[in-house]
């Protein structure tokens, strides 16, 4: 290296010349970094995966008081058509007493309170809670019961008893029509 530096100092225009080398080096570096992006981005979800990122569900067949499980992004989603009783039960709880404080209002859409849409993944360690299908144990609070470690969820999908730290997650969803629900 010393040989090169000597050459430089012997001659005029040192800075201008150095600029060229630095410029070329920086440009090559920028090019190398920029060309890395495609190799990283290819690991992101591909177009066909993204096309499955949202689903539309016909909810006209779900009777009041029953619920269904649909698969969305590889995980179960519970869609529950709640009875008036279940809704008032969910509203009757004092929020301050809850483990994860949320009102029922925050967990459903205004005007569509009868529909509860939650991820069917227990917030403890990821098991699928029971209580969607007829005859399954619904836990102490009439919602869901996770058989893995005994977490009890209420009719708003909120954690009431057991090791789970959070309420069942509410995914992003919208009603396209009165009978079509879009998740994602």
């Amino acid at each position: 290296m010393s040989t090169l530096e000597n050459t430089h100092h012997e001659e005029d225009g040192v800075t201008r010349r150095d600029m060229i080398h630095v410029g070329a080096g920086v440009m090559a570096g920028v090019g190398a970094v920029a060309s890395l992006w495609p190799f990283i981005d290819q690991m992101n979800p591909a177009a066909d995966t993204l096309a499955l990122a949202s689903i539309e569900i016909d909810i006209s067949q779900i009777d009041t008081g029953s619920a269904i499980i649909v698969k969305w992004r590889g995980k179960p989603v519970f869609i529950r058509h709640r009875t008036a009783e279940e809704i008032s039960e969910a509203n009757a709880v004092a929020v301050a007493d809850l483990i994860d404080r949320q009102t029922d209002e925050e967990r459903v859409q205004a005007g569509k309170e009868e529909w509860l849409v939650v991820m069917g993944v227990c917030t403890h360690l990821g098991c699928v809670p029971l209580g969607t299908k007829t005859g399954e144990e619904k836990g102490d609070y009439g919602g869901w019961f996770c058989p893995c470690h005994g977490s009890h969820y209420d009719t708003s999908g909120r954690i009431r008893k057991g090791p789970a730290p959070k309420n069942l997650e509410v995914p992003e969803y919208a009603f396209l029509t009165d009978t079509t629900l879009k998740i994602g």
């Binding site: 010349r17 060229i20 080398h21 410029g23 070329a24 440009m27 090559a28």
Partner: peptide, 15 residues
């Protein structure tokens, strides 16, 4: 980009 880089490298090389 490659054309500019190559020209710059050529000048750098000549120097």
């Amino acid at each position: 980009f490659l054309a500019l880089l190559t020209i710059l490298l050529y000048i750098s090389m000549k120097v």
